[in-house]
Amino acid sequence: MELSLHRLRMLRELRRRGTVTAAAASLHYTVSAVSQQLALLERDVGVKLFERLGRGVQLTELGFLLTDHAEEILGSVERATLALEEAQGTMSARLTAGVWASVASGLLPGALTSLAAEHPGIQVRTRELAPEATAEAVRDGTLDLSFVIDYSDAPMRWDTGLERAVVAVERLHAAVPAGAVPSATVSLDALAEYPWIMASPRSHFGRAIRIACQRHGFQPKINHEVEEQSTAMVLVGAGLGVTLVSDLGLRLLRPPGIDVVALTTPLLRTVSIAYRRTEIRRPALQLVVAAVQTSAAELGLGSEPELP
């Protein structure tokens, strides 16, 4: 019997996620591809690993047994990979990073260009995920590292199994229709009467803005709920409301008809890179972190939280 690591990862995800659909989404495969690979795994081992329950599947007792061993096998493979990287003393590694739009466009181009020039053996692939999903993907081994965010008004709960390296600290700015705010700065409560364009409360960004507004004494009147800062700025440019946008968000394509105004009481957003805590230090990963920190510094974004 020869076990495929690829199929064992799919089995592990099925146990963690509960359904083939959720496992496929976490691994970025189609449902049919995962179903086919799991069926081949069952054929490889020669025992029944799954039972169908309605439209879903459930692991059998032997399926749970193999999954327990899959955790050990995949963990050993990861530890062996890290040990080889360290023993070689050469910078050669393939890493997968979780990103979202503003860090992918603002921080990565400079960081990965300089990394490729100085350490061509390090290959970084990216997957765009919602910021709220990236830390979990690192924890379960889907990603090697991910960008995560923290807001001064809404700090996130941190997983003790992960390490975190701060790479940039951004300010949030008010984006308003041109001419709506005549001064160079504005307090958040002065925007209370405007219609707002905001991410949903399911997102960390959306929750953080709502909390900031509440702390300034008002509930924002939300006319448009959109997730991407670039989309929100298009709506602001059309005169449909106001929003908050980060330093990196401002590096996205900015439409005409917008004024960007500083907040009198700064709202900060800390961008970090999260990775799994291991006994073996991974030099290639640390070089990626350093390259991103350098890229952020070149953009004028510090790596230490700035006091208001």
Rank of each mutant, 00 (worst) to 15 (best):
Q293K: 15
L74Q: 02
W158R: 15
A39G: 13
A22Q: 13
M156R: 15
G206Y: 06
A174V: 01
V234N: 12
L285R: 06
L3P: 04
A296F: 07
A184S: 15
V260D: 04
R210Q: 14
R277S: 07
A274L: 11
F205I: 00
T243K: 08
G217W: 04
I280T: 15
S272Y: 02
A133H: 13
Q37K: 12
Y194V: 00
L263H: 04
L95W: 09
G46W: 11
Q219I: 12
V242I: 14
V242W: 10
V176H: 03
S203N: 00
Q36N: 13
A93N: 13
T90A: 14
G46D: 13
L285Q: 10
R139E: 14
G141K: 06
L107S: 10
E170Y: 09
A290K: 13
Y275Q: 02
T185H: 10
G56L: 01
A174P: 03
D150W: 10
L11P: 06
P120N: 08
G56H: 09
R16N: 11
A238W: 08
L240H: 11
S105N: 11
T294H: 14
I73M: 07
A168E: 04
M198W: 01
D150L: 03
R94V: 13
V226R: 06
E71R: 10
G54A: 05
A101F: 11
R277N: 05
P155I: 10
R276A: 14
S92C: 11
E228W: 04
S32G: 01
T265K: 13
V148S: 12
E163H: 12
E128C: 06
R254Y: 00
I273D: 03
S272K: 02
A25L: 09
R15M: 08
H28A: 12
V289P: 07
R157P: 02
D189P: 00
V124D: 05
P201A: 11
V167F: 10
S152M: 06
G121L: 11
A24M: 05
V242Y: 08
V245N: 03
T21Q: 13
A208T: 03
R55H: 11
D247A: 03
R251G: 12
A133S: 12
S303D: 13
A22P: 02
R43W: 07
L3N: 07
S183F: 08
E71P: 05
A83F: 01
